[in-house]
Simulated assay, not measured.
Amino acid sequence: MSVKPPSGPMCTRASLASDFRAMGLRAGEVLLVHSSLSSLGWVCGGPGTVVMALLDALGDSGTLVVPTHSGDNSDPAYWQNPPVPEEWWADIRASMPAFDARTTPTLGVGIIPETVRNWPGALRSCHPQTSFAAVGPHASAIVDAHALDCRLGEHSPLARLEEAGARVLLLGAGFDSCTAFHLAEYRVPSSQVDNSFAVMTPQGRAWATVRDTSFTSERFDELGAAFEKERPVVRGPVGGAQARLFGLAEAVAYAEGWLPEHRPHPSAE
């Protein structure tokens, strides 16, 4: 059986750190990263190399933050990819493992966030579905007190990142994965939905339901295209990936104006 040779470019810790610095990453800053490992090319050492290169660029005083979401801890009645039979729903609600910040794996956010989650010294917020992990001196301030009824709003790490003057790096990822835009959804007229998950309480594991803001990434690609046309967004290559770097607060503020005009009726996600 023939094996397809790896496609380049070849990336090393040193080459990636150099590309990050050329993009404008600064030592000491707080950085939220959305990433695609495969977009970079062939990375010598895999995802751990990317994390080390990011930490090299940020320095000991910088803080790296990634989404460590686990959306499978949710009501099976709303599962789409794939759905499960209705006769399973009750058993799933009774048996779904409770979220554990130490051990619950990520889902759908890529291997780089999963690597950061397991990094020495990493801290993780405690929302069962939309947690974030952080490494660095500001990690605790960013991930603490993530409310169960606020997936991506004022009582989530996104608002703490905004307060910290964080920037966002889309590393081979598109604007459709930009979680910062969701913070804007919490600040414009939006519907409320029931949101359920398995969580640990002082009394033990429980299936909990809370009211939270409905959100969706629908049209985020259009929102991002408009944002980078009108606001400062640094674009450049990192390995084989196209990367974008911009201020989180600027992105949220722009989305607060764009969303009510272009997407006035948000749907649940």
Rank of each mutant, 00 (worst) to 15 (best):
C178R: 07
K229R: 15
R167T: 03
M96T: 15
G48T: 01
A255G: 01
A141P: 09
F175W: 15
H182Y: 12
G121Y: 03
G71D: 08
A141W: 04
E222V: 14
T213I: 10
L245H: 06
L148P: 01
V50N: 03
R102T: 08
R26L: 13
L183R: 15
T209L: 04
R263S: 06
R187N: 11
D72T: 14
H182W: 12
G62W: 02
T49A: 09
A27N: 03
G24N: 11
C150N: 11
F220L: 08
L148K: 12
V233T: 03
L259A: 00
T12V: 11
A206S: 14
Y186F: 14
F175Q: 01
G28W: 02
H127V: 01
D75F: 07
P9K: 09
A198M: 05
Q129S: 06
T130A: 15
V116K: 09
S15P: 03
S15G: 08
W79C: 07
T201W: 12
A166F: 06
L170E: 01
G174L: 13
E154H: 12
H146I: 11
I112R: 00
G28I: 01
S214G: 11
F227T: 02
S267A: 13
A94T: 04
A184C: 00
A22P: 05
A122K: 03
P232H: 08
L183E: 10
M1Q: 09
H155L: 13
I92Y: 10
K4H: 01
Q242C: 02
S39Y: 05
S177Q: 10
L158P: 11
G153V: 08
D19A: 15
T209N: 09
G204F: 01
T130L: 14
T63G: 02
T201R: 13
F181P: 00
S38Q: 14
P264T: 06
L55M: 10
R263E: 04
G24C: 11
P6T: 07
V168Q: 00
I112Y: 04
A255H: 03
H262N: 12
H265P: 01
H138M: 10
H34N: 13
V43K: 08
A53T: 00
S190Y: 13
A198H: 06
T179C: 15
I112V: 07
R13K: 13
P120M: 00
